[in-house]
Nucleic acid binder design. Structure first.
Lengths: 155, 155
DNA sequence: AGTGAAAAACAATGGCG
DNA sequence: CGCCATTGTTTTTCACT
């Protein structure tokens, strides 16, 4: 793992907040020259600390109205089943996030679809037919209070 | 809501994937000139379709090793309590996402902290003392299979 | 709605203290 | 690490279709 000092953390905090800031703007806010910000950014990008830059798009604007959390229990805890299930969820575009959880449900998926019909299709046609899947329990997000995905790292 | 045509969707798809692509590069991939990509981007940004640009940072690189999903039930379903709880979760930096859910738990939080001790502090010192909170049930992500937060919009 | 070229802004490097 | 200068890119605007 790469060394990260206070300046690096400040740069990361700035870019997490708004990646369209120029090196000059970032530098002004943290007391560093633009050229140094440029060099540090390159280093952080090459080291994989910055994984990528992305545009955060309003889901409603592209016709996606339903966010759901889907808990999935697998049939048997065989290595084979688990691997096939992982390949499945990674390949499904509706799945924004997939985590292996402690507790009664094996997996937790965050799913985004256009509407409730889309959620039904996703569960019944994509998830349940997979024979590693034993059962599925979904909760729909009626409202999203916060969705910024900022990491709370100390600066 | 703003009109979004096929070109706009293609631009959004490109920038969601990698926001560091230049207008020229985006244009080449979708068959449009850089100047048109620039104009459409500005329109999409001003309309709020692109909400922001952000750097996606590796949590482990900044010392954040624990992701947990925390279900929260409130004491009473008073409007007052709900509002105060919303203000709380919005203000807590450890909370990446907060959703109002259907089902038995009122709220679902996605929380990122440094370690299990940090999760304990978060739950016991930040969440439970709030008198709107009745009970809390947390599941820790032992492994994250997918975490790209890409929207699956048709292009 | 689109292209292409010019102007302005920016990123990335290298050299020096 | 700051500062400065240079070079190549990129964005943005403008004239034109």
């Amino acid at each position: 793992m790469v060394e990260i000092d206070g300046f690096d953390r400040k740069i990361l905090a700035q870019l997490q907040e708004d990646a369209s800031r120029t090196n000059q703007q970032v530098g002004e806010r943290i007391g560093l020259s633009a050229s140094q910000v440029s060099r540090r950014r390159q280093r952080l990008e090459e080291a994989g600390v910055v994984r990528r830059y992305r545009a955060d798009i309003d889901p409603a604007a592209v016709g996606l109205a339903v966010v759901a959390f889907v808990g999935v229990a697998l049939n048997a805890h065989s290595r084979q089943n688990a691997r096939r299930f992982r390949d499945l969820v990674r390949s499904l575009p509706e799945v924004q996030e997939a985590h292996v959880l402690t507790g009664d449900m094996d997996y937790m998926l965050k799913v985004v679809v256009a509407d409730l019909a889309g959620l039904s299709v996703f569960i019944n046609d994509e998830l349940l037919p997979h024979d590693a899947v034993r059962n599925v329990r979904s909760s729909i997000a009626m409202e999203t209070l916060k969705d910024d995905n900022r990491l709370p790292f100390a600066i």
